[in-house]
Write a protein that binds this DNA or RNA. Sequence first.
DNA 1: GATGAATGAGAATTCATTCAT
DNA 2: AATGAATGAATTCTCATTCAT
Lengths: 201, 201, 201, 201
Amino acid sequence: MNERGRATRDRLLAATRDVVRDVGYSRATTRAIARAADVTEGTIYRHFPDKTTMFFAAALGPHNEMLTQFADLPDLAGTNTLAENLTTALIRLAQLREDILPLELAILTDPELATGRTAARLDAVSLATGGPPERLAEYLRSEQRLGRLRADADPQLVARTLLSLLFALSLEPSAADADGGRPDPALIGSAVDLVVRGLAP
Amino acid sequence: MNERGRATRDRLLAATRDVVRDVGYSRATTRAIARAADVTEGTIYRHFPDKTTMFFAAALGPHNEMLTQFADLPDLAGTNTLAENLTTALIRLAQLREDILPLELAILTDPELATGRTAARLDAVSLATGGPPERLAEYLRSEQRLGRLRADADPQLVARTLLSLLFALSLEPSAADADGGRPDPALIGSAVDLVVRGLAP
Amino acid sequence: MNERGRATRDRLLAATRDVVRDVGYSRATTRAIARAADVTEGTIYRHFPDKTTMFFAAALGPHNEMLTQFADLPDLAGTNTLAENLTTALIRLAQLREDILPLELAILTDPELATGRTAARLDAVSLATGGPPERLAEYLRSEQRLGRLRADADPQLVARTLLSLLFALSLEPSAADADGGRPDPALIGSAVDLVVRGLAP
Amino acid sequence: MNERGRATRDRLLAATRDVVRDVGYSRATTRAIARAADVTEGTIYRHFPDKTTMFFAAALGPHNEMLTQFADLPDLAGTNTLAENLTTALIRLAQLREDILPLELAILTDPELATGRTAARLDAVSLATGGPPERLAEYLRSEQRLGRLRADADPQLVARTLLSLLFALSLEPSAADADGGRPDPALIGSAVDLVVRGLAP
DNA sequence: GATGAATGAGAATTCATTCAT
DNA sequence: AATGAATGAATTCTCATTCAT
């Protein structure tokens, strides 16, 4: 694949994210995506074997960024406050996630996407689980070792709870509807506070 | 509408819930639902003006049950423990919600469903918001007055957080996948505990 | 058939004419007609073997009136002026015809209606041809005998021309659109004048 | 659109005209037309946004020819006889119109086609009115100026009458049924004669 | 005589995908 | 590498008609 090909491919992936965000997964047709990427429909199939694969590929980019972002979270243990670190990390995560949330939902909702032949790809992407939960738990364990988190809390459970919370808040058709950006940072802060409160040693 | 008609209508609503649960919203076609209800497709349109209306009607039943269930939550203030009351209520809610979760998601995800002419119906149903959040907040306020919840907590925010949490946990393709019932009661308990911990006065 | 039945039948025929006039032949569904007649769809089939038969029956009434109206046209020969007699007769015809014009058109347009098993019924009704042309020709022949019409005119051709003209003018989406009544009497008068002019002996 | 596409589009338009002529507007389904054009139904929608648009497009071709034909009618003023010029023009018009007559009727008959969003297209096509009536009136005015038409005749009214007459004669399921071609030239000639007779100065 | 439910055959339209160029 | 045309299966919805009550 030469440079022109790669550029087209990237445009298709960006178009996929844009269209899905704008009109929802079910109305994100190959026609709409091709149009948004300024190519014809046939071109899609030169770059991806089918529509589903393209969707997963479109999600992969932001997902990798999410992984990268979280990679150094454990290093922050001991610095700032617990609430500060968590809030910052989750807000960043929410922003990155915004692009691919509709796709995550589609996968979660659609039994066929969540199983069968797509299972492998799903695993590779590990959207809901995978990286972030692990890094977050690791960070919490470090804080626990430092005595900044009560000893009887289960880091894994806490991590999972925080991420679930973030996920749900991102979905809410809440106040922040206006500016298009879904999750309201202030709301995230409040929610994190609530949880962190019970984590003090 | 005579008894036979009413029976058919009910069968259609049940079939809608079943099919949506089994194959997801996007594959829940009129054909599949009619087949599941053992009628022909045309029959659907004798009972509902269109597919969307039928979906909302299918969600309405369980949703009303949810409202009923939560109606007397405020009365429990002062009895048992905070964690017990909340956990019980949320587990019950999760069970009732199970049936209509895919539809809630579809509404949340699909820009067209979430707006326009469906807005009125959505409001009437008040799926995500409405009844439960209010009742829950009311209950928390009562507990606050009784001194069983720290005074500086915002009942509305806490209620919202708990429900968001429940929502996210219900979505997780977690362990409980096997028995079909999505949300693991034990998990809900743990999560509630985590939040309640920080609510002690 | 008792009185109740006859009343229902008449209501169905009137409803057929009304609905066809309002929404056109293709949208005049059994459902719409039944609704307009305030009965259920099933009732239609107690009175008519099928929809087509009902339509023909609906056209028959006004058509018979048309025949009656024209019956004594020949007697007018020698009275008034040629133009007066013709104009009056054609305006009356246009009014009666208004109700069933959409149906006539449907028959004219639809090859299946115009042939086959409906042919017999069509003939019985003899919508386009039949009575009026004959009576009109007869009247013209009488006037010819009285010397009020030039001798070398073919009464049959003149009759046909006048009726065709009326038919086309009735179809025009002309000025008279406002009051619902299609054919503008003044326009009919002018057109008749034009033809009559050439008929003077 | 390349040549293959253009060919398909043309085949679709011809098929539309053929099918409508053969089975009538109401039975001219996308399926039948696609079959007649030897493509699948989906192909229709690559060329036209919907069925109605295709019908209007199918009518546009012959209609434009009609306009062209009539364009130089005014120049004939003073040549031949009045009756000859009119008869020739109307016979030619009838032939061109034959193809699209069922569609004109459908538009005239169907309230929905005759209004709303189709109004613009209707206007563009100006089926019943527009070009021909104007050209015809212009021609008659010229003849009037030349003294070949009586001075007190209203050219516009005469034009309208002649065209209405032609329209109605074209609809008659008359003798000429056999050869498929609807309007009998001889009949047109006779009718024109009748009118022209009264137009002599 | 009338109802109301149900049918089943089709209608227009959409869409992921294939293929010749 | 990309285009543009075409496919064919599926989708929602309509409608004349039948039938049990």
